[in-house]
Computed example of a mutant assay.
Amino acid sequence: MSLILFAEQVLNGLQYGVMLFLMAAGLTLVFGVMGLINLAHGSLFMVGAFAAAAVAGATGSFALALIAALAAAAAAGALVELLVIRRLYDRDHLDQVLATFALILIFSEGTRWIFGSFPLYLNIPSALSGPIALPGGIQYPLYRLTLIGIGLAVAVGLWALIAKTRLGIQIQAGEADREMIAALGVDISKLYTIVFALGAALAGLAGALVGAIQSVQVGMGEPVLIVAFVVIVIGGIGSIKGALVGAILVGLTDTLGGVLLPELFKLFLDNSAASSVGSALASMLIYILMAAVLIWKPTGLFGARA
């Protein structure tokens, strides 16, 4: 493998990682603060993608599409929290899993009813289309490079929100001792709604951004959700820094493994067998990484509690 191809795959892994971060950050906020297992988080990813595709198709504006994705996902998240999730905080995790799995079915069938069963397509804006020349002779798609920048900017913004604002202090306190901050006069119900809507908005933004490089279709959020769970287990539940580091590790492991392992097995097997064995092993790498991290540190890289 050439050095240029390797560098391109590293950038692909980084781009995949920061998109996973947008999913995992909302998921780890909800689980860390509320103690809630939300299987419907991937459906909010799908809501953002469909809202962006619909608005972009009607207006031709990618910026309006992103705003629509954020607004639609946040509104859907707030509505779900008010009508369903609020009744699950004091229930055990099995009830939460069953209820949020039902929400997946509702979102999927509702989306199919509104938009139909055929995929939608969200075009990359013309200003971000085409490749850009990077040092070393690398030609890399400008849009994917922009996704990396947006993801890292969101990570910095989330850090500032959690570490530097009053709302962030309340979120941290809610994660540590929700009964105490409720006793101190913080409206815990309002805080939970805000946190859930924020996590939903991040998922919707990820859906809109990814929707421009793949088709927008019903059920597109569930595969991403599975990997996002792997990310928060690796990074540590409730940790934004852990979500970012875990997402980048998973993105790089998945992308580079899919390229390097088949090449490695070609040293021992014929091309067809090497590709088959290498691809099969590459698909397991992120779970092997998760197991290795948990053996070394059961709370995850930056987790504060078991």
Rank of each mutant, 00 (worst) to 15 (best):
L147W: 00
F118K: 04
S108Y: 13
L79P: 07
F107R: 02
L105I: 14
Y89Q: 10
I162E: 03
F107S: 02
F107M: 09
I132M: 11
K164V: 02
V97M: 14
I85Y: 03
L147A: 10
E81G: 13
R87S: 13
A99N: 08
S126Y: 02
G110A: 08
L98K: 07
R166Q: 12
L158Q: 03
T111E: 03
I150P: 02
I104V: 15
L147R: 06
V84A: 15
I138Y: 01
G136S: 08
G130C: 07
L82Q: 11
E81H: 13
G136M: 11
T146C: 05
P141I: 07
A127R: 10
D92G: 15
V97T: 11
S117G: 15
R86G: 15
G157L: 10
V97H: 05
L83P: 07
D95K: 10
L103T: 05
Y140P: 03
G174R: 07
Q170Y: 05
R87P: 06
Q172D: 00
A127W: 12
L122E: 01
R86F: 06
R91Q: 15
Y140S: 06
F118R: 13
N123T: 12
V80L: 14
I138R: 04
Y140E: 07
Y140W: 11
W113T: 07
V156N: 02
